Computed example of a mutant assay.
Amino acid sequence: MMSDLKAELTEILDEAEWEWLIPHVQRDAVILVAPELNLVDVGVAIASDNIPSVEQWIDEQLITKPTTVQVGEWNLERSKRFNTLIVQPYVLVKEIVAT
Rank of each mutant, 00 (worst) to 15 (best):
M1F: 02
M1L: 10
M1V: 07
M2K: 13
S3D: 13
S3N: 13
D4V: 08
D4E: 15
L5Q: 03
L5T: 06
K6V: 05
E8S: 12
E8F: 11
E11I: 01
L13E: 07
L13A: 02
D14P: 00
A16H: 07
A16I: 05
E17F: 00
E19D: 13
E19T: 10
E19I: 12
L21G: 02
L21W: 05
I22G: 01
I22T: 10
I22F: 03
P23C: 14
P23D: 13
H24N: 04
H24S: 06
R27F: 02
D28G: 08
A29I: 01
A29L: 07
V30F: 01
V33L: 06
A34F: 04
P35A: 15
P35T: 13
E36D: 15
E36H: 14
N38C: 06
N38Y: 03
L39D: 07
V42C: 08
V42H: 02
G43R: 02
V44P: 02
A47V: 01
S48M: 07
S48N: 12
S48I: 00
D49A: 13
I51S: 12
P52T: 00
E55F: 04
Q56Y: 04
W57C: 04
E60M: 08
E60P: 00
Q61Y: 03
Q61N: 09
L62V: 02
I63V: 14
I63T: 01
T68S: 12
V69Q: 14
V69N: 09
G72N: 15
E73G: 11
E73V: 10
W74L: 04
W74M: 04
W74D: 06
L76W: 08
L76M: 14
R78P: 03
R78C: 07
S79P: 00
K80W: 03
K80C: 08
K80M: 15
F82C: 05
F82E: 01
N83G: 08
N83D: 13
T84L: 05
L85K: 04
L85S: 00
V87P: 01
V87C: 02
Q88V: 11
Q88M: 13
Q88A: 15
P89Y: 13
V91G: 00
V93R: 04
V93M: 11
V93N: 05
E95Y: 06
E95G: 07
I96H: 00
T99F: 10
